[in-house]
Structure formats: C-alpha cells, structure tokens
Write a protein that binds this DNA or RNA. Sequence first.
DNA 1: GTCTATATGGCGATAGAC
DNA 2: GTCTATCGCCATATAGAC
Lengths: 226, 226
Amino acid sequence: MLEGSYIDETTPRPGERRIGPVSRPTRRGYHHGDLPAVLVREGVALLAEAGVAGFSVAKVAARAGVSSAAPYRHFPDREALLAACAAAILADLTGVLAWAAEQAGPDPVERLAATAGAYAGYVLGHRAGIDLVYSHDFGVTHREAVHEQSRRFMDVLMKLAADALPAGTSWAGVADLVYVHVSAAHGYAMLLAGGTRPPQNVEEHAARATAAARDHLTGHLARLRG
Amino acid sequence: MLEGSYIDETTPRPGERRIGPVSRPTRRGYHHGDLPAVLVREGVALLAEAGVAGFSVAKVAARAGVSSAAPYRHFPDREALLAACAAAILADLTGVLAWAAEQAGPDPVERLAATAGAYAGYVLGHRAGIDLVYSHDFGVTHREAVHEQSRRFMDVLMKLAADALPAGTSWAGVADLVYVHVSAAHGYAMLLAGGTRPPQNVEEHAARATAAARDHLTGHLARLRG
DNA sequence: GTCTATATGGCGATAGAC
DNA sequence: GTCTATCGCCATATAGAC
C-alpha cells in the first residue's frame, strides 16, 4: 500500500545500482526486516532482467524468498507493486541525473547536456526497467506515487534548463526544451537498450548522448538568438 | 513462416494506415483469400490498441474471424507472428518517412528533419506498435525478417543524412548522425505515446519533433564546421 | 486449411491455518 | 505476516475430425 517510501533518500552515484534501503534495521521480529522494500528491490531487478512483459508477482515473491501470496499483504494487486517499482526507479534516476549535473562543472549548457549522458547510462545499466515508467498505463489508483516522483524528476531538469536558456525565457519555453531533451536521451537509450547485446561501451554511448544533447542545445540557442 | 512478404510494396501515404495487401485475389477456394496477410494486419491493429503486453495469438485469430488454432498453420509460434507484424510495421514506417522527405522540398536539412516529424506522427498514430520493433527480443529464428526491414529503414535515412552533411563525411560520421536523429524522434514519440491521453495535436507534436531535429542538425553542423 | 477439443502451464488473487 | 492450498482465467500449442 505504499505506506512510507522505499526509496533511498541519499543521492546515489551512477554506478551503484542501489535502489531501495536493502536492510533497514528491523522494527520487530518478522521473518523479513522489511518485506515491502525487498519486494520493490527484487521487482526492479526483475524488470531490468525480463522487462515489463516478464514481470509477475509470483516471480518477485520467489526472488524475495517468500510465498506467492505474501506480496498481497503489502500491495493490493500487481499494479500497485509495479507502480512502487516505477516510483523507485524514477527516484533513483532523478538522483543520478542531479549528481551528473553536479559533476559537470559550472557551465549551464554542459550541466544540462551531462544529464542526457547520465540518462543513457542509467537506462543501459537498468535495461528494460525504465520503459515501465513511460510506456505503462498505471490506473488512476496507482498513478500518484509515480506522478510524485515524475514531478521531482522534471523539477531537476527544469531548473537546469532554465539556467541554460536566456534569462527571462517563459516557463513554456523551458518546458519545451526539457521535453525534447528528455525525449532525445530516452530515445537514444531505448534504441541501445532494445537489442540483446550486452551493455558494453556504456561510457562511450553516454558520451555520445551528451554530445547529441550539446548539439541540440547549441542549435536551439542559435535559433532563439535569431 | 513468412513465405513471401505481407507488405504492400507501393509507397503508402502517412494517413492511410494500409499495411498489408488486405485482399489479394484468392488463389483457390479457401475460406480466406489470404489468412496470413489478414493475421498480420489484425496483429498490427491489436498491437496498436493493446501493446505488446496485450498481444496474443488467440486475440488475433478472433479478430480475423478464425479459430485460435488456425494461425498455427501459417506461423509456427507466437514469436513468428510477432516478428511478421514487426516487419510489416517497419516496412510501412520506412515508406512513410521516405514520403515525408519527398514532400519536404529540396533542402537536405529540411528533408532529414521532416523524417523526425513523420516518425513522431506515425508512432502517435500507431501507438504501442512501434515499441515492439525496438524493445522486443526476437529469437535468432525470427530476427531476420525484422532485420531486413530494419536495414531498408536505415538505408533511407542514411541517404538523407549523407545529403545533409558536408561532402566527404565518413560513413561512421553519417551513421552517428542517423542514430541520434532516429533516437530523438523515437524518444519524442514514445514519451508522447506513453500516456493514455488521446493522440490529439498529432500535427503539432510532429512539427515540434521536426523543429527539434532541425535544431540538432544545426548544432551538429556548427560543431563540424568548428 | 480450418475446425473442435484438449493438454499443459502460468499468473492473479483469495481462503483459511498457524 | 507468512504459509499452503486452491480457484478461475487465459494463453500457447497440439491432436484429430472434416
């Protein structure tokens, strides 16, 4: 039921793969310290390996070492678990992007461009997981947790984009840029992640995504200047 | 088994939605003139409505008005039918992109940019169908039909990109641009298509995808010129 | 080539013991 | 909270009649 957040609040580094609090000290003497968190963690891992199509509550339960009925004590149905996984992925990704911008130095264009590379690197590392966030229709019931994380994700990018654009650019103008920026990074990563080929050259591909974003920003700014 | 091609060889117009030869004159007195073609057509329609997750041989058979066993006379398994659908979608899309470039006039940059808008428009019109092409892992057995269409798809764009780039640009340089170009269009379309919201403003979104591609090309060319 | 019928198996979800 | 057991559903795929 999503009581509380399964998301690690500390900002993760790109390589770490850490998504939820793996072992928060147990509150009482249950079999698991925190089964909901374990389920989300295993769900995210399963999504990365098998995609949304290969996702099932039973498999997640088996991974977590509990019976197939156990998850239903914490999540009312499959969609709820799926939504929790999506929210966790988005939160993690947001942290990764913020961190990448931080590392990119002071130039606003470079900071925004770096998020494209980080996005591509993240998706290549997490495979199918990310397609869930965008291509799955969450029912109204479960949409909110995902939406909240989605908002935080956009906040980070909007701020970076506003810095990169001329002072006084309208909100709509900033949003347009962010949308295209995210789209391009997403598309680049999805095309790469689509094949079965292993995620080799992740660094190189991330660098290309960054370069593409830089090119786009350059052209965009040139057009704005007339 | 893909004996022959179910793909309409005449170049389709963007709006038409025509994918396979719907009623090629029957050869003998069977119930259906060409069940394989009908199955592919219905499969593509089902993919557009329900996505890969909602795809099943039984549903396609029902749509085609035959029993759930009938498809297995023509396609050895579910994957084969799925691959045939993917190939049909890719072939159709290739035609749409070529047509869009044709309509865009003589300027090479505009011609290439127009394909991004056409791509976005196509995906918005066909919804989930296109994610199959990129995000589904076809087994080695069925990969070839898809791969052949994928090659033709890239050929069209490589030619357009080569025209837009400075004379003498290396093959790798052209390929890099095409990859980023397709990725951005794909990402833009997927983000839009991801939600449940109806495909309103398709024209407007296609125009934005075109503009984004134009910006990217501008920046890319500027960087090449130093 | 297409049908009816069926074997097989997985998944979602619930009931009730502990 | 977790388990075992189970129901119902749907999908893939096959067997054999026509």
